[in-house]
Amino acid sequence: MKKIKKAISHFFYKTLIIIVRFLLKITWGYKVEGKENIPSRSFILVANHVSILDPIVIGAAFDKRLFYLAKKELFKSKIFNPFLRWLGAIDVDRKDFKYETWKKINKLIKENEIIVIFPEGTRNDHPEMGLLELKDGAASLALTHGLPILPVGIKGTEKIWRRKKFFPQVKGRIKIRIGKIIEIPKVRRPSKEDIKEVNEKIKANLMELLK
């Protein structure tokens, strides 16, 4: 029964992605570069975060379902909670990272799934000033499991759907640039220096993609 439910869910997800891609393309000239850089193995996807549209435009760029680590506040709505979970979002308490969350993440890694993290931790309202200070989550997770990191740059969504705006603007262009994979060594207990070094690599790669 679980296999049947999973197959049905997968079918509807794939159908939704095709529809979303079409709508993004005809509305905002949606364009994706660097798909040849996507590895077939499990990895952590990191991207800049400037709009509520970002998870949607990233998801549309990949044929495989993505799993997003998202702050728990987004799950308070009874309407959006089931939709977010169906899309693959996992609620994270940034002040108290619970064991249950680690279990979900470890299960995804064992199943060779793709985990998406916005290392800035929140939407950047002033991307013209550069990236916000990166949080430790993505670097720490990659080091602990020896997972490679795939950097993705998002351009255009910050002008289309700004914070506190109820509806997106029709004018604008969206461009996704997928960078080359960053190999990360497995470190059982990453030090602050280890995490800092990985974050510097993430930041440098994202900044290059956003040029």
Rank of each mutant, 00 (worst) to 15 (best):
D93Q: 03
P55Q: 12
E113Q: 13
K78A: 13
K104R: 14
L108H: 07
W86C: 02
P39R: 10
N81L: 11
V57I: 14
K110H: 08
S77C: 02
I79T: 13
E100P: 00
F97A: 10
L53W: 10
F83D: 00
I90Y: 09
K110V: 01
S77E: 06
G88T: 04
I44A: 02
F67V: 01
D54E: 02
L108C: 05
K104I: 12
L108A: 09
E111D: 15
E100C: 00
L87K: 04
R94M: 10
F75D: 09
D93W: 10
H49T: 05
V50Y: 04
K110D: 10
L87P: 00
K72T: 10
S42E: 14
A70Q: 04
W86K: 10
N48I: 08
K71A: 15
E36A: 11
L45Y: 03
K78R: 14
E73W: 09
E36F: 04
D96G: 04
V46L: 07
K71C: 09
R41C: 05
K71S: 14
P55D: 12
F62M: 13
K98E: 12
I52P: 00
L108N: 06
E111V: 01
P82E: 11
A60H: 03
S42P: 06
S51F: 05
V46T: 12
V50P: 00
H49A: 11
F75I: 08
V46N: 04
I109K: 05
Y99G: 00
L87C: 10
F83N: 00
R94A: 08
P39G: 10
W102H: 13
N106S: 13
I52G: 14
K35R: 15
P39Q: 04
D93I: 10
I56F: 13
F75E: 11
K76Q: 13
F97E: 03
I38N: 07
I114Q: 01
I114R: 13
S40M: 03
G59L: 07
E73N: 11
F97V: 15
E73Y: 05
L84K: 03
F75A: 11
A61K: 07
G59Y: 05
I79P: 02
K64E: 15
K95A: 08
T101C: 08
A47D: 06
K98L: 11
I115R: 02
I114Y: 02
K76V: 08
E113K: 14
